Simulated scan of single mutants.
Amino acid sequence: MTTLTLHATGPVDPAEAWDRYLYPARWSSWAPQITGVETDAARIAPGVTGRVRGPVGVSLPFVVDEVDDGGRRWRWTVQLGPIRLRLLHWVSPGPDGGTTTGLRIQGPAPLVLGYAPAALLALNGLVRRS
Rank of each mutant, 00 (worst) to 15 (best):
V127C: 03
G70T: 12
A41R: 03
A31D: 05
A15R: 15
G47M: 14
A31L: 01
A119S: 11
I34M: 03
M1Y: 15
G47Y: 15
L85A: 13
L123C: 06
P11T: 10
D13A: 14
V56W: 14
G102D: 08
R86V: 14
G71P: 00
P55W: 11
R75C: 09
T3N: 03
S130E: 11
R128V: 00
H89A: 09
L60I: 09
E38F: 08
T49L: 11
V63Q: 06
A119F: 02
S59H: 04
A118I: 09
R75T: 14
I34W: 04
I105F: 04
A122I: 00
D96A: 15
L103T: 05
A17Y: 04
P61E: 14
A15S: 12
V91R: 01
E38V: 04
L80R: 07
V58F: 10
Y23R: 15
L123Q: 00
T49A: 07
G107V: 02
A116P: 01
R43I: 12
P11L: 07
G107S: 04
A109W: 09
A122R: 01
L60D: 08
L22N: 08
R129M: 02
T2P: 02
Q33P: 00
W90N: 15
G10M: 08
G47L: 10
T5A: 05
R51E: 04
G36A: 07
A31T: 01
V56P: 00
V48G: 09
V91L: 10
G107A: 07
Q79I: 02
P110E: 07
A116N: 09
T99N: 13
P108Y: 06
W27E: 07
R43K: 12
P108N: 05
G114H: 01
A109K: 13
R72K: 13
S92G: 10
S28M: 06
Y23W: 13
L126M: 06
W76S: 04
R43A: 15
V78D: 03
L121E: 12
R51F: 09
P24M: 10
L88W: 12
G71F: 08
H7I: 06
L4G: 00
L126Q: 02
I44E: 00
S29T: 14
Y23H: 15
T39A: 13
L85W: 06
W18M: 01
T5Y: 09
G114F: 06
F62S: 07
G47K: 14
L120C: 03
R72S: 05
E38W: 07
T9V: 10
W90S: 12
P55S: 13
A17H: 03
V64M: 06
T5G: 09
E66C: 10
V56R: 15
G54V: 02
N124Y: 03
R84M: 08
D69M: 11
L111N: 06
T100H: 10
L123E: 00
T39S: 11
V67D: 00
G97D: 04
